[in-house]
């Protein structure tokens, strides 16, 4: 039984009866529970190594869905009893200094992590752009949009990604944005918003998640974007493999 801790931590027990037996054992065996915990944490760090940027558009859809989802009632009534009593006298100076230092360390650490994250983001974006451009099956296409201006797309089906830039595209009407779409034979997926700004040429947008048979679409949508196109596309560009 004990030897199953590893398989359990990586979700590799598929026999339901065996899984239930092991979980029963786990409740009685302190040592196994400790081992499983360490292994689960190890597996999570192992998972971190596979990190890659989530598809654009997912964030908005998740946040939209979360705003409509009720949270489970808390299971932790036990915390209520443990709330510490209010201290009856002024805390001593040493404690104040210690607390302030802790807060300061915490804040600095967050700032450092942010900077580090930003650097990593720039690096991985750079690497992702290069990967598409250098892919052996990379192709480039250009096409005018019906609103004026021209789209240039470099795509690689092997890398499942495309890069798009737009030149001379008029600014969207007030309160509107340009939104990109991957138009598959069975599914339409949002592919991110076109960054506002320089109208002579937009910054390149990297769109992951490209599958064979997809076309690239561009529509005008309300600010913030939508999860489904609501207007006629001003550009539909087939991306042949």
């Amino acid at each position: 039984m004990h030897v199953l801790t590893g398989a359990y931590a990586v979700d590799a027990i598929d026999d339901q009866a065996e899984l239930r037996r092991f979980e029963r054992h786990l409740r009685r065996c302190q040592q196994c529970a400790g081992e499983v915990r360490g292994m689960t944490e190890t597996a999570a760090r192992f998972g971190f190594a596979a990190s890659q940027p989530a598809p654009p558009g997912l964030r908005d859809r998740v946040l939209e869905s979360v705003a409509k989802t009720r949270q489970l009632p808390s299971a932790a009534n036990r915390h209520r009893a443990r709330r510490p009593a209010r201290p009856s006298q002024m805390p001593r100076l040493g404690w104040v200094v210690a607390a302030v230092s802790l807060v300061l360390i915490f804040v600095l650490q967050i700032a450092l992590l942010r900077a580090h994250d930003q650097l990593n983001q720039v690096r991985s974006r750079q690497a992702a752009l290069t990967a598409v451009l250098a892919a052996p099956d990379a192709r480039a296409v250009t096409a005018p949009t019906s609103a004026g201006g021209q789209a240039t797309v470099v795509y690689s089906l092997r890398r499942h990604s495309l890069i798009v830039t737009l030149a001379q595209l008029p600014s969207p009407p007030a309160g509107k944005v340009y939104e990109l779409w991957l138009l598959g034979p069975h599914q339409v997926r949002p592919a991110g918003l076109l960054p506002a700004g320089n109208r002579s040429r937009s910054a390149p947008v990297l769109v992951p998640g490209l599958i064979s048979g997809d076309q690239l679409g561009l529509t005008v949508e309300p600010a913030g974007g939508t999860s489904r196109p609501t207007t006629t596309p001003i550009l539909v560009l087939p991306l042949r493999g």
Partner: peptide
Amino acid sequence: VADAVEAALER
């Protein structure tokens, strides 16, 4: 697939 974008340090 993920090669280009993996978190280099942890990896």
